[in-house]
Amino acid sequence: MTVATLYEPSRYGRSLDQAAIFGDAALKPRLAAALAAAGGGPVVAPACVVVRIEGACIRDRGITIQRDGASLPLFETYRPADLYAVGMPGPCHAPQVLPDTHAYLLLTSSGTFNWGHWLAEDLPRFRAVSRIAAGRPLCVLMHGFVPAIDRRKIELMRALSERADVQLRLLRPDTAYRAADLYFVSPVSGQPGPKHPDALADLAAAGEALIRRQAKRWWRLIPVRPKRIFVTRRAARGRVPVAWDEICTLLQARGYRPFDPEGAPALEQVAVFAGAEAVVGCMGAAMVNTLFCRPGTPVLHLAPDSFPDPYFLDLAAARGHRYGVCYGTALDPTRPSQTTYVLDPAHLDRALAWLDGGAQRSAA
């Protein structure tokens, strides 16, 4: 049963700026094909609604209900097109029963274990807590995977919460749960696919408001907030260019300060990206933090040419950012999305000149 519409459908433009793609010319047809496979542009992001489900069973990131002896899955929790597809859930055997002292809101998606996907796909739906009047305390459920990331998620949700009565609970992905009264919010972002610009804008605005409320704390944590940042990425995560240390030194010489989101509290990440005039970093989860950047901010991604993923193009288009990519030659074709790669110095130099110019326009 639909109980509220969180967002109406919204349209935005999505196209590749060929002048902001730096790499071998032979790559560009593959980029165009990847964009076409994602739906091309312009894009219509569908409406986002809050639904109430009675007698729901949660297993991993899937939801099922029992009807006439059959276990019926909620399609939005196992969308086959998602990057990390969750298998179709079957019958819910011997589940833990969640106490009926609370109503429950489940925030989950196929990529919820990943900080970036959670940030763009789950967190914007947290706004639904203000639209749920259940007549009892509300408990927000999410799946726990990596304790350090889970702590950052909880930190950010508590800081953003507008309701004092909201509780947060982590679920185990290997355990089934049954809830008599469960709320679920339809997706605001796809993998790949549309990202609702209003949902992301509201999250960015909430982040800005949070920074203003805690201004004294931020100035103590970050005495001089960097305006031009490069986002560091650890080699173990993959998708890092060869000679990354030398590239980092080059970026610092051009006035870009390093920032390691993996080692920073969630609230500090919001503050740093919200104040950035230009961002450069390896394409990956940490770069989803750019959704907190103001419209018009230039964002340059570094990536292997075996990874023409339009996900971040969609993110930039939905937020009104200037999107650029510098592609390097992939070294391991068996791991196209995680391989190391070699950046051509000429391509990188032109990409950084583009980023510097964008930073000057952003500051003006």
Score class of each variant (00 low, 15 high):
F75E: 13
F75V: 10
E76M: 14
E76S: 12
E76L: 11
E76K: 10
E76H: 12
T77H: 15
R79N: 06
R79E: 08
R79K: 04
P80V: 02
A81C: 13
A81W: 14
L83C: 15
V86K: 09
G87V: 02
G87Y: 02
G87P: 06
G87Q: 06
M88T: 11
M88L: 07
M88I: 10
P89D: 06
P89K: 11
P91C: 14
P91V: 14
P91H: 13
C92M: 04
C92S: 03
H93A: 12
H93K: 15
H93D: 15
P95Q: 01
P95Y: 00
P95R: 01
Q96P: 03
V97A: 08
V97E: 09
V97I: 09
P99D: 01
P99M: 00
P99T: 01
P99S: 00
P99C: 01
P99Q: 02
P99L: 00
T101G: 12
H102T: 06
A103G: 09
A103V: 05
A103C: 06
Y104N: 05
L107Q: 04
T108Q: 08
T108M: 05
S109L: 01
S109P: 00
S110E: 11
S110M: 08
G111I: 09
G111W: 06
T112V: 05
T112W: 05
F113T: 15
N114Y: 12
W115K: 08
W115A: 08
W115D: 09
G116N: 05
H117F: 05
W118T: 03
L119Y: 05
L119N: 07
A120H: 06
A120P: 05
E121D: 15
D122N: 12
D122M: 06
R125T: 00
F126Y: 07
F126C: 04
F126M: 05
R127C: 09
V129Y: 12
S130R: 10
S130T: 11
R131T: 05
R131V: 03
I132T: 03
A133N: 15
A133E: 15
A133H: 15
A133Y: 08
A133M: 11
A134K: 01
G135P: 03
R136P: 06
R136W: 08
R136F: 08
R136T: 07
P137R: 06
L138K: 00
C139F: 01
C139L: 04
C139I: 02
C139Q: 07
V140Q: 02
L141H: 11
H143W: 03
H143F: 00
G144N: 00
F145D: 05
V146C: 08
P147R: 12
A148I: 13
A148E: 15
A148D: 14
I149H: 15
I149T: 12
D150N: 11
D150E: 10
D150T: 06
D150M: 05
R151L: 15
R152C: 02
R152A: 04
K153Q: 02
K153H: 03
K153N: 03
I154V: 11
I154D: 08
I154M: 06
E155A: 10
E155C: 07
E155P: 07
L156M: 07
M157A: 10
M157G: 05
R158D: 00
A159L: 12
A159R: 14
L160G: 13
S161T: 11
S161I: 07
E162P: 13
E162T: 13
E162W: 13
R163M: 11
R163I: 10
R163N: 12
D165C: 01
D165R: 00
V166M: 04
V166F: 03
V166C: 04
Q167R: 14
